[in-house]
Design a protein around this nucleic acid. Structure first.
Lengths: 169, 169
DNA sequence: AACTTTATGTCAGCCTTGTTGACTTTCCAA
DNA sequence: TTGGAAAGTCAACAAGGCTGACATAAAGTT
């Protein structure tokens, strides 16, 4: 699949995508994702939780009252796997599970005050890093960053992502 | 930590970083990383390997002859964890481990032809997705993407990342 | 009313990939 | 030459994925 790299002089208006360039992009994703999860991981460890717990409370915070099934779709894990995490979060009093009023089979999930506190703590450090990175890179870079990430998503996840439209801008 | 969102009219020259904006960035990373690993995961599954194996052969390909210790620094796992993965790759004939000539404690790692074949197969699909995303987003977006990712890395990882400088451009 | 489907939860067991602890071999420096 | 440090290996454990089987309750269908 080698692209037969264009020389230094070939059109910059098209894309100059040598395998080396693409490889750098791939490694950038790899290392950046580690940075992205580093702060949350530190906090979670103090509380004896893992990333799985973080993902759950993140999306419950984003969509309070979401059902277990919704969450399964977003997280892309099995119900057994999610259930294990959810059970401990409920036992520990971070998440509340309310039986649906219209459809009593459904469980609607909410963060308790305690759960919101942990979510907030993690959210804060994660946003802080994102904010720093954004400021270092500048507004144009931020737009590009989001565009590339969006183009990299699987179609179904892209829908999930876009279903929460941008707040202000 | 709420930023007290600036209204639609406030200076676009500074950064317009509402919590909502930052949250979108966080979710973009989350969903994009899934897309990023989706194709490799499919191929790896056919060969009964996991992401850990992929990471190993990726960085051995990038730096042939690297030692186990070097690899540990890059991958950020324990040597025991890496060793298990390495052992199966060596048993399966994808990786060759040569005892160091100067320092016999060291093992220098190389991909065999078979290992290079798998690495290439995975690399191809991963680059293909990256290329598609880059093309969809355009050159300016690509630059921004890389800038933000780099700003998001932990300092030590940033050094690792930058140690392989850009090929052409 | 009987049957089927859906939503959720649970138990059991497996696999990958992280972890720590203990150990061997090799190297180097006092 | 001997003791510590470094590189690598083996053993055992934990988290969090997975599948399969099954239970319950509520909805929906016939």
């Amino acid at each position: 699949m080698a692209e037969g790299g264009p020389g230094p002089g070939s059109g910059e208006s098209l894309l100059f995508l040598t395998d080396e360039q693409l490889r750098k992009g791939i490694e950038a994703m790899f290392f950046a994702y580690r940075g992205f999860t580093a702060d949350p991981d530190r906090i979670l460890e103090e509380h004896a939780y893992g990333r799985a717990h973080h993902r759950a409370i993140h999306f419950i915070k984003r969509s309070p009252g979401t059902t277990v099934n919704n969450l399964l779709g977003i997280l892309g894990v099995t119900k057994q796997s999610l259930n294990r995490v959810l059970r401990t979060l409920i036992e520990d009093g971070l998440v509340e599970s309310r039986i649906g009023r219209r459809d009593k089979r459904e469980r609607h999930l909410f963060l308790t005050e305690k759960g919101a506190a942990l979510e907030g703590e993690i959210s804060d450090v994660q946003r802080a890093r994102m904010r720093t990175a954004y400021r270092a890179a500048g507004p144009a870079a931020v737009a590009g960053f989001r565009q590339v990430l969006e183009a990299m998503m699987e179609p179904e996840m892209k829908r999930q992502y876009q279903s929460l439209k941008d707040g202000g801008t």
